[in-house]
């Protein structure tokens, strides 16, 4: 980080700080409400008392929410970890080829890939289900493609290809061609060059893709509810069953919402610095 302060007068600095702080507080408002409501007993968990701190603090809602949500959390891990790693692998290879090992029509192909980012998924849900069911039958693996986590991973990885390719490609463009060329002269092929030159410097781009994909896999509801079954439901579907059920106490809904969000928030805190670094290194610049 290049901190070039000092040039400006103190009052201006404090104004800046003050404005940032104000927005910080505004950004945290929904979280404040989520948190305090989740610790309230039933009688206090009501929109009318949204701003009040609990008069009696209780973790009862958290206990119930945890009980209801736990199976989904594990399913989400099984979904989001392999899913985001696979996305990284595919995106990295695509990005590498499309930036450093071009073939005729590579630009057109890249443009065609990118367009995939923009289709509305609700519109493809019915044929997608049919395709996955057909894959179940064609492969003889019942409950894998349709009704299982692998199918959901497949959908996410495929629809994630455009954005992941974009991020890696834009990042790899910044690697000097001389390095690649030198490796070639040494007789290294496509994969060796990737392994020895490109992969070692890919950290920031991986961080951006992992954050992006992990978040969207973890938070996705639409694919999850259509493509999986009750045993393989991830967190969001379970959360919907808690929050969407008529007359579930608000404190439980909010505790469950926080629980469901903890893993992604942890990822942001842990990888946030790398995320910024990746953005600065040109990823997602378009």
């Amino acid at each position: 980080m290049t901190a070039v302060g000092g040039r400006r007068a103190k009052p201006l600095l404090w104004t800046r700080f003050g404005v940032l702080l104000l927005f910080g507080v505004i950004f945290l408002i929904p979280i404040y409400v989520l948190l305090v409501t989740s610790f309230k007993p039933l009688t206090e968990a009501d929109p009318g008392q949204a701003w009040n701190l609990p008069q009696t603090w209780t973790a009862e809602a958290w206990r119930v929410a945890w009980e209801k949500l736990a199976p989904g959390l594990w399913n989400s891990v099984l979904l989001a970890v392999p899913g985001s790693l696979l996305s990284c692998a595919l995106g990295s290879m695509n990005g590498y080829v499309l930036s450093k090992w071009r073939f005729p029509g590579a630009d057109v192909l890249f443009t065609l890939f990118l367009f995939g980012m923009f289709i509305p998924y609700q519109g493809v849900m019915i044929p997608l289900v049919q395709l996955l069911v057909w894959l179940n039958e064609a492969t003889g693996l019942q409950g894998v493609f349709y009704g299982g986590i692998p199918g959901l991973v497949l959908a996410h990885v495929v629809y994630g290809i455009p954005i992941c390719t974009l991020i890696f490609r834009n990042y790899y463009v910044t690697i000097p061609d001389e390095l690649i060329e030198a490796s070639r002269v040494d007789g290294a092929g496509l994969l060796r060059t990737y392994w020895s030159i490109v992969l070692p410097v890919s950290g920031p781009a991986f961080a951006v893709v992992i954050i992006w994909q992990f978040t969207s896999l973890w938070n996705d509801f639409l694919f999850a509810v259509f493509l999986t079954g009750p045993q393989s439901w991830p967190t969001t579907v379970m959360l919907n069953n808690i929050a969407g059920a008529q007359a579930t106490p608000y404190s439980q809904q909010m505790a469950a919402a926080i629980l469901a969000s903890i893993p992604t928030m942890v990822i942001y805190v842990l990888l946030g610095r790398f995320f910024m670094r990746g953005l600065m290194a040109g990823a997602l610049k378009g």
């Binding site: 929109p47 938070n219 919402a257 969000s261």
Partner: peptide, 22 residues
């Protein structure tokens, strides 16, 4: 930065209920 970025981490399935209240 962490404060401004974290809303990206949360799904609307999770925050929809709060926004309805707010």
């Amino acid at each position: 930065r962490a404060i401004y970025l974290f809303p990206m981490a949360i799904s609307f399935v999770a925050t929809g209920i709060v926004w309805r209240w707010l």
